[in-house]
Computed example of a mutant assay.
Amino acid sequence: MGKVDNTVNKTDEVDAFMDKLDHPFKAEVELLRESIKAANPKITEQIKWKAPSFSYQGEYLATFNLWSKERVHLVFHNPLVVDIDSELLEGNYTDGRRMAYFADMKDAKAKKTELKRIIKQLVKAIGK
Rank of each mutant, 00 (worst) to 15 (best):
K48Q: 14
R117M: 05
S35V: 04
N6M: 11
V4G: 14
L89I: 06
R71V: 05
Q57M: 12
Y56V: 00
V81H: 00
V123Q: 02
A108W: 00
R71M: 11
R33N: 11
S86I: 10
S86Q: 09
L61M: 08
V29H: 10
A125Q: 08
E28P: 10
V72M: 10
K10R: 15
L32S: 08
A110P: 05
V29T: 02
K10E: 15
S68R: 04
W67C: 00
D83N: 14
N92H: 14
D95H: 12
N9G: 09
R98I: 01
P24D: 00
S55C: 13
Q46L: 12
D22I: 14
K50F: 13
E13F: 06
Q121T: 12
K116A: 14
V81D: 01
K128C: 04
P52F: 09
F76W: 12
K20N: 14
K48S: 15
K120H: 02
T63A: 15
D95P: 04
L88W: 13
P79Q: 02
K37Y: 12
D83L: 10
Q46E: 13
N78I: 00
M18G: 09
G127C: 03
R33A: 05
T94H: 11
K120L: 02
V82C: 03
S68P: 12
K120S: 05
E70T: 14
H77Y: 13
K37S: 05
T94C: 01
L21R: 05
N65E: 08
F17T: 02
E30T: 07
S53W: 07
N6D: 11
P24N: 03
A62T: 07
D19K: 15
A125R: 13
K112L: 06
K124R: 13
I126Y: 04
G2R: 06
I119D: 00
K106G: 14
A103H: 14
S55G: 07
D5E: 10
S55P: 05
P52M: 00
D95A: 10
T11N: 05
T44G: 07
F102D: 03
G2N: 09
Y101I: 06
F17C: 08
T113P: 01
T63Y: 07
L80G: 11
S68D: 07
L31T: 11
K109A: 06
K120P: 01
T7Y: 13
K120Y: 00
G2D: 08
L61V: 04
N92T: 00
R33L: 08
G58T: 04
L122R: 02
V29P: 11
K109C: 06
Y101W: 11
H23F: 13
D12L: 10
K112P: 03
F64N: 06
E90K: 15
S35I: 04
R117K: 15
M99I: 11
K106A: 15
Y60D: 01
F102P: 10
T7S: 13
L32G: 08
D95Q: 09
F25I: 00
G91H: 01
E13V: 11
T94N: 12
H77E: 02
E13T: 12
F17S: 05
R71H: 15
V14Q: 03
T94P: 11
R33K: 07
D22G: 09
K26Q: 05
D5F: 10
Q46T: 14
A39S: 15
V81E: 01
I36E: 02
